[in-house]
Amino acid sequence: MTFSRLTQPQHTGTAPLRDEAAVSGDHAWHAFREAVANELDSYFEGLGDSVTQSPGFPMLRLRVREQVTGGKLLRPRLTHLAWRAFAGRTEPIMRGETRNIPDPDCVRLAASFELLHAALLVHDDVVDRDPVRRGRPTVGELYRRDAQNVGAPSNEAQHLGEAAAIIGGDLLLAGALRLATTCTADPARLQPVAAVVFDAVTASAAGELDDVLLSMHRFGSEHPAVQDILNMERLKTANYSFEAPLRAGALLAGANQDDAARLAHAGSRIGVAYQVVDDILGTFGDPRITGKSTEADLREGKATVLTAHGMKDGRARQVLADFAAGRASVTQVKTALADAGAETSAVELATELVAQAEDALDQLPLPDAERAELNSICHYVLHRRK
């Protein structure tokens, strides 16, 4: 199965996102991302100074640190983008970033979102029982193997792995909140920025819970509607990944609450579209590219926009029921969903959400460079392969 619709040109008004580099200036973005990496290194190095008597802690620190590497740094990029969009209007001197000197407050806030992302991924891997993330063993899987290698029974090894991963996720979460609540010395900006981050953590917890509860449909309850799934995806991921970085970055730069909220609204649409595409990749993607299984969502009974669409088709609904009862294979489910038009419907939904985001962005007083970058991100969301 290929993403024929995803690889066709969509109307976004810009070229595809080539990589993580900012449309408004590759040098500025590369300098900023390097500063974020240094901020993260400083955080983890500091942990070694404060915790010195636990023999197991150095390995945990190393393993959770690895969870912060290899990503697209999308959340720091969005934080930086929103900050740039408003910094020049509130304090012209902040535009000193044009000399490729990243603003330290923005760097620290951006790093907090990357730690938050890593924390939630580590916890999500426990919830979803995923042994692989970005093509590498998860924190829990590494500890499970450790326990297995010393002779622990399989159930005890699994429990130890999950316990260690929960602890590691907590460590990352604490770091995210620490950086967010110390990102600026200006109390007038710190309070609203920190509130955004705390709200994002709360929303993600609620969304994760909804995701778990929505999967109960496989035990006989009614399959969730598409809107229920979209609401869950907004809470669980789109909020902390798109809405919050854009809102917090704008507020840190001195934007008023209305403009920050409008920017976050556009981010919400982009973020939910991102998750819809993630659903598609989670079922029809190439594991060699995505770095994760294309069977896990189905085996876990995840309610996605794909399965919601499939429930409207008689044959796909029967195959899904047979799969839940152990009478059909993953391959048969994928074929039935594709034949029912689930992938096509999901692509159309993602495209509509991105169009709504672009309409919202058109109403905002954004500089040309930052507007172009946001449009590029919209295009990337629809065309990404992993």
Rank of each mutant, 00 (worst) to 15 (best):
E348F: 04
V330W: 14
Q318E: 12
I377A: 01
A340R: 08
D368E: 11
P367N: 00
E352W: 13
V319Q: 09
I377C: 01
L364G: 10
A372R: 15
A360V: 11
L349Q: 13
Y380G: 08
E358W: 01
A355Q: 11
T351I: 08
A336C: 03
V319W: 12
S376A: 15
A338G: 02
K334C: 01
R317Q: 09
L366T: 00
L361W: 05
A346C: 02
S345E: 10
E348G: 11
L337V: 04
V381T: 08
Q356S: 10
V330G: 14
D322H: 08
H379R: 13
A336S: 13
R317A: 07
T351E: 15
S345Q: 09
A324S: 14
V381Y: 01
R327P: 04
E343G: 07
L337P: 00
N375C: 06
H379T: 10
T331I: 11
L374V: 12
L361M: 10
A369P: 10
R327N: 04
E358M: 04
F323C: 04
E370K: 01
A338K: 02
E352V: 15
L364I: 13
Q332R: 09
P367A: 00
S345G: 07
A360W: 00
A357S: 09
A336L: 05
L337D: 06
R317V: 15
S329M: 03
L366Q: 01
A342T: 15
V381C: 03
A355C: 12
P367V: 10
V354Y: 00
E358N: 01
A342P: 15
L364A: 09
L366S: 02
Q318T: 15
L361N: 03
A357M: 08
A328N: 02
H379C: 11
Q356Y: 06
V319F: 11
Q356E: 09
T335Q: 14
H379I: 08
A350R: 04
D359L: 07
A321N: 12
A336E: 11
T335Y: 05
A346D: 05
R327D: 08
R317H: 10
T335S: 12
V381M: 03
D339H: 07
A350K: 09
S329L: 07
L353I: 12
T351S: 14
A338D: 11
T335L: 11
T351R: 12
R317K: 07
D368N: 10
E343K: 06
Q363C: 09
P365H: 13
D359E: 08
L366G: 01
S329H: 02
K334D: 03
E373V: 04
G326K: 12
E352A: 15
A325R: 14
C378D: 06
L364Q: 03
P365C: 11
P365I: 15
L337N: 09
D368S: 10
H379S: 12
